[in-house]
């Protein structure tokens, strides 16, 4: 079978660092962050993340996010298609956002047999690793089926867990199913959540950041042996550094530190900590 030039399209909630986006020639369609009357593309340029998370608690009303307009998605997708034999589009779970539909509509003018649309079932770099590893396999094999199979294996062996430092933003945004995060509790709770098949679920509830960090480190250890690891935060570099120290013995060489993209950060607020791991088993 002929080697195919396979290109990847995803959306900006993938949290793939800019240098890797460039390296693999990935097309990232931006989600939009709306502050007051202004709409900003979540492209890592229009909004400086550090600055944004510093400002976020004082922003009233809370900024909102919106899926990319299908027109913009279509432009970017069609551009990517120009020098590709096949497009693989990996999108934020439709259970979490309308982005999936925007990308689906954006690919509407392309020959369907040359486009594969995949629901990542997750978000952030858990979705990003599906794209990155998919891109690696695509360069190695040039075979769509092998790439799609690898993405499915990555999905099965990836784990995402995030500490929500304060429920304030979730409450204000109304976006995430409150019941799952243990809302309604009298005591202030910091939930640790995960995403399973596009559904946000609470896996633990703690009271302090130090407990949360220990829980996350413990969870990461349970995911070893690690093929990939990303430590994510919303202006909580201190927390990431602490986790790096604790995990020195199992840390993969190319462990990423990511200040989460503003489209996600808007909903979870500042000072969060998270990780995404991919177990080595994905290779089998």
């Amino acid at each position: 079978m002929a080697f195919k030039r396979i290109k990847f399209v995803t959306d900006s909630t993938c949290d793939i660092p800019a240098n890797l986006v460039e390296k693999w020639g990935i097309t990232v369609v931006p989600v939009f962050v709306n502050i007051g009357d202004e709409s900003h593309a979540d492209d890592g340029i229009q909004l400086n993340r550090e600055d944004y998370y510093d400002r976020l608690p004082a922003l009233n009303p809370l900024p909102t996010t919106s899926a990319p307009p299908p027109g913009i998605a279509a432009q970017m997708i069609e551009k990517a298609f120009e020098d590709a034999d096949h497009l693989i589009i990996v999108a934020l779970s439709p259970k979490l956002s309308a982005t999936y539909d925007a990308l689906r509509l954006g690919a509407g003018n392309l020959p369907p047999e040359r486009v594969t649309l995949i629901d990542s079932g997750t978000m952030s770099i858990a979705m990003g690793y599906q794209v990155l590893i998919g891109a690696e396999i695509a360069v190695e094999t040039g075979d769509v089926d092998q790439v799609v199979a690898a993405i499915a294996r990555v999905r099965a062996h990836a784990k995402l867990a995030a500490l929500i430092n304060s429920l304030e933003n979730l409450r204000r945004s109304g976006r995430v199913n409150f019941a799952t995060a243990g809302f309604g509790a009298l005591l202030q709770i910091k939930p640790i959540v995960t995403v399973n098949d596009g559904v946000v679920e609470t896996i633990a509830r703690v009271r302090t950041m130090s407990r949360a960090k220990e829980e996350l480190v413990q969870m990461i250890r349970q995911q070893a042996p690690l093929d990939r690891l990303a430590l994510l935060h919303t202006n909580n570099l201190e927390g990431v550094e602490w986790m790096r120290e604790q995990l020195a013995d199992i840390l993969p060489e190319d462990t990423l530190t990511i200040n989460v993209t503003t489209a996600i950060g808007t909903h979870i607020g500042p000072k969060c900590l998270a990780f995404v791991s991919v177990n080595k088993k994905w290779r089998n």
Partner: peptide
């Protein structure tokens, strides 16, 4: 007791 119960809910 409250601390232990919170862990219990987990």
């Amino acid at each position: 007791g409250i601390s232990a119960m919170l862990e219990y809910t987990n």
